[in-house]
Amino acid sequence: MPNTLILVAGPSGAGKDSIINACRPLLASDARIYFARRVVTRDAQSPGERLVSVPAFEKLKAEGGLAFDWAAHGLMYGLPREELLPDGMVQVIIASVSRIVIPAISAQYPSHVVFINASDSHIRERLHLRDREMSNDIEERLSRKVLLPEDVPMTTIQNDGTLAEAATQFRTTIFRFTTEV
C-alpha cells in the first residue's frame, strides 16, 4: 500500500494539535504510522513542531529543504521534505497543515484531509484560554473562511465533545488507511 498523507487541518482553536497529541503516544509504537514534524517560527513548541528562527527558516526554504511552506497569523510554517520520506513500513504520514496548502500538497501526494472543526463558541473559548491572541484577533480568526478543495477526500471531526471522543474518531480514521504487515 502506498503512503497516504493525512492532512490535518481546520480553524485555529478547533483542537487539531490537542487531538494529534492525544493520539501520538497511543500510536507511537505502530510502525505503519508516522507523525511528520513541521518547522515553525513560533516561541512555544508543540511535540509536532521543530522551532526555527526566521533566518534558519528562510535558509531551509532557499536550500530546498521544505516540500511545502506557508505563512499564517504572523508565523512561517514548513513541511520538510525529509518528513515526507519516512523509513520502514510506514503506510500513513500525519501532517498538521494550513488549509491554504491542501491543494498544492494533494496535487503531489495521495492525500486525505481530516478536517477538525468546532462550534464558534468552543473555538472562542479555546483561543481565550490559549492567551496568545487579543479579542479582536480571535474574532478575526472566527470570521476567516477558507474553501477546501472538493476533489480531495475528507473526513470531518466535529470537536465539540471531549478530547477522548475526538481522538477516538481520529484514530479510527487513521486506521482506515493501514493494512496488516
Results as ranks from 00 to 15, higher is better:
Ala72Cys: 01
Gly78Thr: 01
Phe68Ile: 03
Ala95Asp: 06
Ala67Gly: 12
Ala22Trp: 03
Ser121Gly: 02
Gln91Ala: 11
Val90Asp: 07
Asp151Ile: 02
Ser96Val: 07
Val40Pro: 00
Leu51Met: 09
Val54Arg: 12
His122Ile: 13
Thr173Lys: 05
Leu26Trp: 02
Met89Cys: 04
Ser12Ala: 13
Arg144Asn: 09
Asp151His: 13
Ser121Phe: 03
Cys23Ser: 15
Ile116His: 10
Gly64Asn: 10
Ser18Ile: 06
Ile33Gln: 09
Arg141Trp: 08
Asn117Gly: 14
Ile33Pro: 09
Ile116Leu: 12
Ile116Met: 09
Arg141Ile: 07
Leu27Thr: 07
Leu60Arg: 11
Asp131Tyr: 01
Ala14Met: 03
Gly74Val: 04
Arg124Glu: 15
Leu51Arg: 14
Val146Met: 06
Pro110Asp: 13
Arg144Met: 14
Thr155Pro: 05
Ser121Cys: 05
Asp131Thr: 05
Ile102Tyr: 08
Met1Ser: 15
Ser111Trp: 07
Gly64Ser: 11
Ala107Lys: 15
Cys23Gln: 06
Pro2Tyr: 02
Lys61Trp: 00
Ser143Ile: 02
Pro149Phe: 10
His122Trp: 03
Ser135Gln: 12
Arg38Met: 04
Leu147Phe: 07
Thr162Leu: 13
Leu7Val: 03
Asp131Pro: 01
Arg130Met: 10
Asn136Asp: 15
Val97Cys: 02
Val181Trp: 13
Val54Asp: 12
Ile116Ala: 08
Glu133Tyr: 04
Ser46Lys: 15
Pro2Trp: 00
Arg144Phe: 07
Asp69Phe: 12
Ser98Arg: 00
Thr178Met: 08
Gly48Val: 07
Pro110Met: 04
Thr156Ala: 11
Val90Arg: 10
Arg32Glu: 05
Ala167Val: 10
Ile19Asn: 03
Ser135Leu: 12
Glu83Gln: 15
Arg144His: 12
Gln169Gly: 05
Thr179Glu: 15
Lys61Asp: 05
Ala166Asp: 07
Arg132Thr: 06
Pro47Arg: 08
Ile123Ser: 03
Arg126Thr: 09
Asp87Phe: 02
Glu139Asn: 15
Phe115Tyr: 13
Leu7Lys: 04
Ile94Asp: 05
Val52Ala: 01
Thr172Met: 11
Arg130Phe: 11
Leu147Glu: 14
Asp17His: 04
Leu129His: 13
Ser106Asn: 05
Leu66Tyr: 06
Ala166Leu: 08
Ile93Leu: 07
Ile6Trp: 05
Arg42Met: 08
